[in-house]
Amino acid sequence: MKRPIKVLIAKAGLDGHERGALVVAMGLRDAGMEVVYTGIRNTPEQIVQAAIQEDVNAIGLSSLSGGHMAQFTRVMELLKKEKIKGVLVFAGGIIPDADVKKLKKLGIREIFGPGSSIASIAEFLKKNVRSK
């Protein structure tokens, strides 16, 4: 049997808005995926460590406090530094259009803003995650 997709849902920085992250975590679990949720207040270092330890296929980053450029950029740098390949990174939260383009350039595959459905996120992951 194929292993289910394993996803780390991570809250970066000091932001405490976790409704979106939790709802996505619960939704992806109900869609048959294995989900690990970090809880709030994680440094980029902690997020990357958790991704390595849990051996996930995908990382979903959430931020609603405006710290996403600094924090997500650092996560992507660390993933590169640790030579982690094949882990899909996606994001959600309050992220202005201008930053979406920049984040995609950094290698974040998709940004799911407010109003996104869990169904669309699950479908995106099923289509794009490389199974290990």
Binding site: G13, L14, T43, G66, G67
Partner: peptide, 18 residues
């Protein structure tokens, strides 16, 4: 801002990006 609310000065490393 969040660093002020969580007790970090603006120059603390925990304040990165916030």
């Amino acid at each position: 801002d969040l660093p002020t609310q969580i007790g970090y000065d603006s120059d603390d490393k925990m304040a990165l990006g916030e």
